[in-house]
Write a protein that binds this DNA or RNA. Structure first.
Lengths: 333, 333
DNA sequence: CTGTTAGCGCATTCAC
DNA sequence: GTGAATGCGCTAACAG
């Protein structure tokens, strides 16, 4: 392997000067600088990033810890993050936690031993890894979910407001008996969206009926089961608000299986957009999250945090947007 | 930062012994080993991965260079790769090349300077980065596409056969005037799938009509435009085979926009599955690729290549599977 | 089986 | 503005 010493010898300068030239320091004689560049080209020299990392006690890696890259919510978010990383000179290490606190912790551990420059995390319910990273003062941005007791930069969406807007849209369509499938009680987004559901009902003077609420696991199977359970009610709901994309798919599958259709049999609004939501027939009304922007914003915050580790943490809340499509068409009399 | 020397001092042994214990070498007195472990725990010592990397002249990083993580084909593939990486002790660095040879080359360069242990690449048309990596003898697995002149482990699907099967299915449904939208001429998958289309026609004794073939860019917009152009033909096709998922979506959008429906106005088979293909109405007939398996297989090959760099490269070809759904229903008389 | 020693390749003091 | 020297933390020789 050719090293900085080889380049130094070849160009008749010291290794220190080569290092200065390569890291773009200004205080180098242009003439020497030129010699060094020439030697680099002749030798086909390539700096050793690992050695640099050791010396600087930090790498150019960011980790992104999410539950599953196959969930389009995270896919797009990761893309947004990676775009920022690329322009800032970082690389993104993809970590699928599958909502498993142990995996999250294992990745957190890797972040520390590999000296990664920063992390973006969507915390699991117990947030074990997040606590570990917070303690180690690793530059970190929380995404999608809050974690009690951890002070860190955070990017959220306006969950309560978005959910309320979606539910209000159903109420405006003439529906009153509106059910809700939301996520686990320990997850802040699940509770925030449930709160939005409740507040929309309250605003409309519709009494809250806890028999119409289901807590599932934010996954397809959970949405399917919750839908089944709602349909078995003595008096099934006439409309439904589902608080994430995978559970919405599950609910749709359950309806399809039973030969039921939205909005005729049950009107539907889902939280979080789905690619091809327009191509599904009937097309799906959603409370869309700016997923790409979430990732991008997280990247920007992380960059700033690395530049100024001492600064007090900030929280950015992005707005959701109601995409009215066919499944929430007004009630027919 | 606590180092291996601190642990050594604390436990009354040499740094070398600490290193041996931590890297799981067997030839260490159990008693000393125990002491070391105790000291590690007491001090909260954490090995420095970067230093280890420098010493060993290699990291535990794999890069995966794909055109776009937002394409569900790659999303699932990356997931498969990451699952293998995790069990083998590697981390995956995500690289979106956007089909841009310059970006591919930049990532290849990063792979080299950061001393990553291996790469999985879906090559861009000119495969600049791939050539660079091949020259440097970096452990590499090519995925989805072949590259002329590069000897490397490769994972492909049975493109020609899968395409032929999809087209034959249309022919069996009574269609004769069948169009094809495929990808760029320089991309092996595009040509292989086109070859499958032709061979199915030939087998059925249907003459090949090049006016019914379009080369687009494998993206949504390209599929849309190609569809438009086919519909403007004096005698539009009665069926269509589209050679990737994004272009299929584009074609569907074009049909929707014009108020046309599959299969009544035009029957449709797409190459590569789409999540929710079942939920789209009419549901979409596809030649499904085992995307997760592609990623998993690539990971396995990469692992083997790293273990035995000298071994001659192998090519694995996975089978596609025809998923018959509604858009290819037999022709009505 | 264990300890001593050296050096991976670089960036950064500190002199000059 | 430049060069010599040092050490980041670890593992692999080698000697004992």
């Amino acid at each position: 392997m050719t090293t900085i010493y080889d380049v130094a010898r070849r160009s008749g300068v010291s290794p220190a000067t080569v290092s200065r030239v390569l890291s773009g320091r200004r205080n180098v004689d242009p003439e020497l600088s030129e010699k060094v560049r020439a030697a680099v080209a002749e030798l086909g020299y390539r700096p050793n990033g690992v050695a640099r990392n050791l010396r600087k006690a930090s790498t150019n890696l960011w980790a992104v810890v999410i539950s599953d890259i196959e969930n389009p919510f995270f896919t797009s978010l990761v893309r947004g993050l990676e775009d920022v990383a690329q322009t800032e000179g970082y690389h993104v290490v993809l970590c699928n936690s599958d909502e498993d606190p142990a995996k999250e912790a294992a990745y957190a551990s890797a972040v520390l031993t590999e000296q990664m420059a920063g992390v973006v995390v969507s915390p699991t319910s117990t947030a074990e890894g997040v606590l570990q990273l917070a303690e180690a003062k690793t530059p970190m941005v929380l995404i999608d979910r809050r974690v009690d007791g951890v002070e860190a930069d955070t990017v959220l969406v306006d969950n309560e407001h978005g959910a309320a807007e979606g539910v209000k849209h159903l109420i405006d369509g003439g529906y009153e008996r509106i059910a809700c499938i939301t996520g686990p009680r320990r997850v802040s987004t699940a509770m925030d969206r449930l709160a939005g559901y409740r507040s929309a009902l309250r605003a409309a003077g519709i009494p809250y009926d806890k028999d119409l609420v289901r807590h599932a696991d934010f996954r397809e199977a959970g949405g399917f089961a919750a839908m089944e359970s709602l349909l078995e009610l003595p008096e099934p709901p006439e409309a439904l608000f589902v608080s994430n994309n995978l559970m919405t798919v599950g609910a749709l599958e359950c309806l399809a299986k039973r030969g039921l259709r939205a909005p005729d049999d049950i009107a539907l609004v889902g939280f979080d957009d789905i690619p091809w939501a327009d191509l599904v027939v009937p097309s799906l009304t959603t409370v869309a999250q700016p997923t790409y922007e979430l990732g991008r914003t997280a990247g920007l915050l992380l960059k700033d945090r690395i530049a100024a580790p001492g600064r007090p943490p900030s929280t950015v809340t992005l707005r959701t947007e109601l995409h009215v499509r066919a499944t929430s068409a007004p009630k027919q009399k």
